[in-house]
Design a protein around this nucleic acid. Sequence first.
DNA 1: AATGAATGAGTGTTCATTCAT
DNA 2: TATGAATGAACACTCATTCAT
Lengths: 199, 199, 199, 199
Amino acid sequence: MEKVKHQWAAADGGRRVRRHDPERRTRILDAALDVLVTDGAAGITHRKVAARADVPLGSVTYHFASLAALQAQAFSWYVEQRTAEFEGLFTAVRTHEDLVEVLVELVQGGPSRRRSAVLGFELHLAALRDPALRALTQKWTGDSRAVLARFTGPEVADRLDALLEGLILRALLTTEPEPREATREAIVRALTPVPGRDT
Amino acid sequence: MEKVKHQWAAADGGRRVRRHDPERRTRILDAALDVLVTDGAAGITHRKVAARADVPLGSVTYHFASLAALQAQAFSWYVEQRTAEFEGLFTAVRTHEDLVEVLVELVQGGPSRRRSAVLGFELHLAALRDPALRALTQKWTGDSRAVLARFTGPEVADRLDALLEGLILRALLTTEPEPREATREAIVRALTPVPGRDT
Amino acid sequence: MEKVKHQWAAADGGRRVRRHDPERRTRILDAALDVLVTDGAAGITHRKVAARADVPLGSVTYHFASLAALQAQAFSWYVEQRTAEFEGLFTAVRTHEDLVEVLVELVQGGPSRRRSAVLGFELHLAALRDPALRALTQKWTGDSRAVLARFTGPEVADRLDALLEGLILRALLTTEPEPREATREAIVRALTPVPGRDT
Amino acid sequence: MEKVKHQWAAADGGRRVRRHDPERRTRILDAALDVLVTDGAAGITHRKVAARADVPLGSVTYHFASLAALQAQAFSWYVEQRTAEFEGLFTAVRTHEDLVEVLVELVQGGPSRRRSAVLGFELHLAALRDPALRALTQKWTGDSRAVLARFTGPEVADRLDALLEGLILRALLTTEPEPREATREAIVRALTPVPGRDT
DNA sequence: AATGAATGAGTGTTCATTCAT
DNA sequence: TATGAATGAACACTCATTCAT
């Protein structure tokens, strides 16, 4: 029954500070995403999130009406961040070769992108059964494809997007990563327009 | 609140009969897959599986040492079936055009393949956190790629497999299905060998 | 089949009131000891303890991390009480005859000491398999012997303590209680120092 | 779900032999005692006993009407063995010094007597709540005291028996065993008759 | 506004016992 | 005679949620 003391308890001589904590909501959302990465949708609980955010249990239920609502807002927050990040990747793209390079890096990103990728698939699967989340994924994939389409046109963007999804899932699951060259080749193929059909 | 009576209870005047039921293990596995489709790996419980299989709760725990073991064996059973089905799709393929047609159908398969696709992604996501399941997915994708490689060579099979995965995931999630022609085009692109590199 | 209503339920027209109940933890510990007396370490369950303490099941699991932890803390609480009681017995001892009288009373204490004796042996047996409990029994017997040693010296205290344990166990199990005189004689024998060896 | 194969299965090409096995009942009883030593009365189950005896689960329920019956018969079997063993200890006793030596050895017996001692206390505690077992313990302690009384007379036997019980319990629980000399001294004290009162 | 004690519903799992074979 | 599949009742434990403070 020993309780973990919160970080500021000691600095305050044991009396609980009720500091205004505008970051708290966001910290809880990030903690929820962390739990989703670690334990999946099956494993998220108020208690784990509270512990991860270093926040009292009541604080989680106070800020979020239900666990489902917390999860939905966490995913929403994730999409917001990832969309911005995704857009950012393409700001420096000038040439076709730049584009390929960015996409290869997106797939091969390694551990640094693992969290992001896992959350993406977690969201996809959750959206399969939750219409509210499906609206989120629809907008997300729409936005992503729009970004790609600026460089490739809509038809190519569609198939490219699907390919990237497949490549990222593979990269996540495999023990022996695919050679960078193979990834590049797959992307180049998808980028090649069909003469007279793709724009 | 009425409990569903078991199938043989009525025929026996209400007294519970224990029937010799050699198919029971398989029926439980199928029920587990049904639950996985409906509620996901996050939502599977012994009780749901038992209800679905029309079997007492104790029967599920008797036949499977743990819920994780049940899930693993259910996924294994699913992969077995799906691998056979996958192989079967290609027995009639003679020409390049046949191959494209089969792959397009695989992606566009519609509701009939929905169950299969959902289970596939559930397995992928579960494998992310369970090494035993990861071994299963490794073998599965390896087998799938080997089948494809008989027609395309290994390099093309690899990228084709990733693309198919992405296309199927997209088909599962979208509300407005992609036109058949776009799917075909994406597949054709992936199939096209790079001159002088792909076999 | 009527469920026992909790004490405050009636006073509230049937709606469950959550009462501030700072004694609850201790009441649960006492209830756990009651159950240990009645059913033994083999028979203790969360449900029995909850019923005995007149608290909901969830309250027991809320306050104690596990049944083993509950049992350990209950035993610890018991030892604390019993040690104090044991010390108290000797405050009025002035003469050797007083000492004998107190010890005889300790053994022959009758039903009033039955609860205490049963718990003592339950603890001893449980400690046989649980190192945490063994630490508790070590300290307990150490303290008891120290109290005795104030009157007898350490060597005599040791054998006296063992004898008392045996006598109490016998008193607990027998249907025909030993005559007071026999108990006294046994104690007197143990108290008699060996010339030139015991202090 | 892998089942452990029984010992004779292999030697028989996989077909189950239904050999007449008159030792089986006894083997089950010994296994039950083993489980009682290891896990206590709280931990005995049909399955553990069956595994320990290397016998199918059904065999245990077939030979014993209930778990309580199995336990009772196991304890009965234990008392039978231990009584014989106890008697045996004294056959070679000629002098007072022999007697003391045998009793000291009984207490200090070490690991070899641990099983026996644990079972004894387990039985005592079980008898506290089960009248059928209490009959058994009554007879057992009666017999033990009668054996002792042949050397000491009844009064001394009584207090000696209690002391031995206490010493054995102590020896079981302590981490640092009592010096042999202290044990001897305690026993000698109990043996010393009170002039003019003990026979 | 914020918290954590509280609790009922539900989870995975174990198991004594029954009984068809 | 012997077995192991079968099952209902119980278990320890978790947790979303509520709400007094």
